[in-house]
Design a protein around this nucleic acid. Structure first.
Length: 849
DNA sequence: AGCACGCCGACT
DNA sequence: GTCGGCGTGCTC
């Protein structure tokens, strides 16, 4: 090659090593495919798989998305847009997570975007609608890092005007700076703790602040302190405070320690110190008071090696050893332990071992079982290594847990369903407690996943052992254990010699005939309640229906108010004095007279928790009755409050829905009443018996602890029903044998897999026609016998959409299942492509519960 | 999911 | 004559 002496610079030849990278990204939208964007060449070394990038999607929208793959293949059919910015320099979604998310999308017939959407706390999902706010701790005059010109502009825009906590959207920030590429400034402002981001208005940052004090800077030197002692010689109270402060904070050893200070409460609420002396010291400038924003998950130094010791009972040791023995040959073990057998202690012991081995641990609990009781207990053992993931947490708190798992700060996480999405990469033990719980299954927005199954798959991918625990295992789970695919360990003895409760059936039909019913209570239940209360013992009553009455009825013309949007009658809620729909938000004022005929003869029919509570207050005036259902636990801490009141015996009777059946341990409860067992048994689906058995056994388990034998009274109109016999003897095995035979005969899980398709449309006939077409397409692919329906469900209209359901039964065999799912998707696509069905909504629910 | 483009009713 | 209703299609 000859050198050219041209003065014109030749166009730069693309160097052989100049490769253009492309990134396939997952957008947080329900789109079936990944989208390919081009990586700006200068930024090639910044692409991180699992990191977030900012892209332009469509004409208007800017979205953050997750990089799923990086490659060098330019898309053939279109020109890829450039990635605008890189948000992370390390993955926020780990490789094992990406693999798991892919599995979820495939198995549960949804898109990766839907999985990402459910998985990421919304503060990790940025869009042009994301907002920035000045960090509450930011003080312009006292900030450690200098700000650049552009950064200052953003801060100025956020601090102009009177408004406190003013925020701007990304779009607005772009306008303020007048440039397109502004994310780097936001990023650096975030790193300097000047601003923070949030996605929804409700997520505005409200930090948890503690008041702290420290010694004023000029006293930190030893000589100055001596002088201070002199000044305070005649002020004993103040001197005491200063001495205590010096005792707690090693001021001499490090100035830094003084800077960190001490919680004010440590001085003001100490037994021999005077709070007013503390305030005088602050007033005189000897102590400085300041606010500190603290993590909601305190790194408690005193707690660091808090490994509280407790000893397992002999039975527990045996069970633990049996679990470990099973783990040597099996990856999954079912721990079948009666209620009150002390499974939690066994879990804690196993978690400790897993942590000692250096792995991560995920401990899943159903929503209602994740209480302060259990968290406190785990905190005491695992201290700051424990992360808690609860649905009532704010988004900021969720991000904190997410990042804590990524950084390794949290090695154990106890959490609800969605905790399976956390970024674990080295799981060694997964525990799914109460594995039979239906709240592990997400029903409405996709992904309609079962956290137990997802946890099993995650454990499989990461080589983790999984322990499933339950007193009443799901039939599917027990079947696997029986077949030898899962290890099985049974714990049949209750902890602390508490016997299993005695279960009594009372016939409500008989009582009705004899006219001895007292409202909805049989004389037997009433007498038993009175006797237990007289002995200062507590009572739990279970009624599986909230509100006062399921409907009201005009006695003169028969009018029953119905929801305008759904095919259900409206429930009467007495406290709110409203008629409410339990399926949509609809509510009306309770009418004083019948709107149809004007009669005042309108009566409530049936009963819910609210009526039980009301009646009891009249019938047992000496008792303190509390209700626990969706209506009384909506506020953030109300659930906790109700439980702690009951625990401290401020309340004697707890009336509630499902919520009272799970995982609550109260030592003083000696009676459990199930007010209407029949409403639980008579349910139109194949799991009705299983659900009823589980509910009865679980709620019975609340009775009798600490050596006291409990009593359970079940009210039913038909005591002859087969299920009672098994419940009364607490015979899970017998129940299982009966149920598994039924399932085999009728072709239900675990012998068959079920996929339920729901077709929704505002117009009945369009919905019906779409459902028929879908059925036909399914039959063509899967055969007539695999497809049931279409059929309108019992509640055939919800939120103004008419519903049709199709049930598909498939062989369990893996390859068959996979192929069948492809057929289901194809059939759904055919319906969707039909012009007249464009407005039809189709949803697939794999393994519905 | 949003957002633009496009084709039919009540209004400055 | 237009503004705007929401049906339809597309987004790298």
């Amino acid at each position: 090659m000859s050198l050219s002496f041209d003065f014109v610079q030749p166009a730069p030849e693309p160097a052989a090593d100049r490769v253009t990278l492309f990134a396939d990204v997952i957008l947080p939208l329900p789109l079936p495919r990944l989208y390919t964007y081009r990586v700006p060449f200068e930024l090639s070394d910044q692409v991180v798989i699992g990191g977030r990038v900012l892209v332009q999607f469509g004409a208007k929208r800017t979205l953050s998305c997750i990089v799923a793959a990086v490659h060098q293949t330019p898309p053939a059919a279109y020109q890829a847009k450039y990635i605008l910015e890189f948000i992370d320099d390390a993955p926020v979604v780990t490789q094992p997570q990406l693999k798991l998310f892919g599995w979820i999308a495939e198995y549960y017939l949804c898109t990766l975007g839907e999985v990402i959407n459910a998985a990421l706390p919304s503060a990790l999902k940025l869009s042009s609608e994301s907002r920035v706010q000045l960090h509450p701790a930011y003080e312009p005059d006292n900030h450690p890092y200098p700000l650049g010109e552009q950064e200052q502009k953003v801060v100025d825009a956020l601090s102009t005007g009177e408004e406190v906590g003013k925020s701007l959207t990304f779009t607005e920030v772009g306008e303020v700076l007048g440039i397109a590429s502004f994310h780097k400034y936001i990023k650096s402002l975030m790193q300097k703790d000047v601003v923070f981001l949030f996605e929804h208005l409700k997520d505005k940052f409200s930090p948890k602040v503690v008041k702290k004090v420290r010694l004023a800077h000029r006293y930190v030197a030893e000589a100055a302190l001596e002088e201070l002692f002199g000044q305070l010689a005649s002020k004993a109270k103040q001197l005491d405070v200063v001495m205590r402060y010096l005792q707690r904070v090693p001021v001499y050893q490090s100035e830094h320690a003084n800077h960190r200070g001490l919680e004010k409460a440590a001085l003001t609420s100490a037994p021999h110190l005077s709070p007013s002396a503390v305030n005088t010291l602050i007033k005189n400038g000897i102590l400085e008071q300041f606010d500190q924003i603290v993590s909601r998950f305190p790194l408690d130094e005193d707690d660091a090696q808090a490994n509280m010791h407790f000893t397992l009972s002999e039975t527990q040791v045996e069970a633990r050893d049996a679990v470990m023995r099973e783990f040597q040959t099996k990856d999954i073990v079912l721990l079948h332990g009666v209620t009150g057998a002390g499974k939690t202690e066994i879990y804690i012991d196993l978690i400790k071992q897993a942590l000692d081995g250096g792995g991560q641990v995920l401990y899943l609990l159903p929503e209602i079982a994740l209480t302060a009781q259990i968290v406190t207990r785990l905190m005491r053992v695992f201290g700051s290594r424990l992360g808690v993931y609860h649905s009532k947490f704010s988004d900021n708190e969720r991000v904190e847990v997410w990042n804590g798992v990524l950084s390794g700060r949290f090695q154990v996480v106890v959490g609800v369903r969605s905790a399976v999405f956390l970024p674990f990469d080295n799981l060694s033990l997964t525990i799914v407690d109460e594995e039979h719980e239906s709240s592990y299954k997400q029903y409405d927005p996709a992904p309609r996943y079962n956290a137990r199954e997802v946890a099993l798959m995650m454990a499989h991918f990461q080589g983790s052992k999984t322990l499933l625990g339950s007193a009443t295992p799901a039939v599917e789970t027990y079947y696997q254990a029986r077949a030898g695919r899962y290890g099985l360990v049974s714990l049949t003895k209750r902890f602390g010699e508490a016997g299993l409760p005695e279960i009594v059936l009372v016939d409500t039909r008989k009582s009705r005939e004899q006219k001895t019913m007292l409202n909805h209570f049989t004389p037997e239940l009433m007498a038993e309640m009175e006797s237990k209360l007289a002995q200062q013992e507590q009572v739990i009553l279970f009624q599986n229906r909230r509100g006062y009455a399921p409907f009201i009825n005009c006695l003169d013309c028969g009018w029953i108010p119905k929801c305008t949007n759904c095919a259900v009658s409206l429930s009467y809620h007495k406290q709110a004095h409203e008629l409410r729909c339990h399926y949509c938000g609809h509510h009306d004022r309770m009418p004083t007279q019948c709107p149809a005929c004007g009669s005042r003869n309108v009566k409530t029919v049936g009963f819910g928790t609210e009526k039980i509570e009301d009646d009891l207050k009249v019938m047992l005036p000496q008792a303190n009755v509390q209700r626990m259902d969706l209506d009384t636990t909506r506020a953030k801490n109300s659930y906790q409050q109700i439980i702690s009141d009951f625990e401290q015996q401020k309340t004697n009777v707890l009336v509630g829905t499902q919520m009272v059946t799970k995982g609550l341990d109260f030592a003083n409860v000696s009676l459990v009443g199930i007010i209407n067992a029949d409403s639980i048994i008579h349910y139109p689906d194949f799991r009705a018996h299983e659900r009823a058995f589980q509910m009865f056994v679980q709620v019975s388990g609340r009775a009798g602890r600490k050596g006291k034998k409990g009593r359970v009274i079940i009210q039913t109109a038909d005591p002859e029903q087969v299920i009672f016999d098994k419940v009364m003897r607490n015979d899970y095995l017998e129940f299982y044998e009966y149920e598994i035979t039924q399932r085999r005969e009728h072709g239900y899980p675990p012998f068959m897999r079920i996929i339920r398709l729901t077709v929704k449309h505002v117009d009945v006939t369009v919905g019906e026609r779409a459902a028929l077409l879908l059925t036909q397409e399914l039959v063509n692919r899967l055969g007539r016998e695999a497809v049931l329906g279409p059929e309108a469900p019992y509640i055939f209209r919800i939120r103004n959409f008419y519903l049709q359901e199709i049930t598909i039964k498939l062989s369990r065999e893996h390859t068959v299942l996979k192929a069948a799912k492809a057929d289901v998707i194809a059939a759904m696509d055919i319906v969707r492509d039909q012009k007249e069905f464009k407005q039809v909504r189709l949803a697939a629910d794999v393994d519905p519960m």
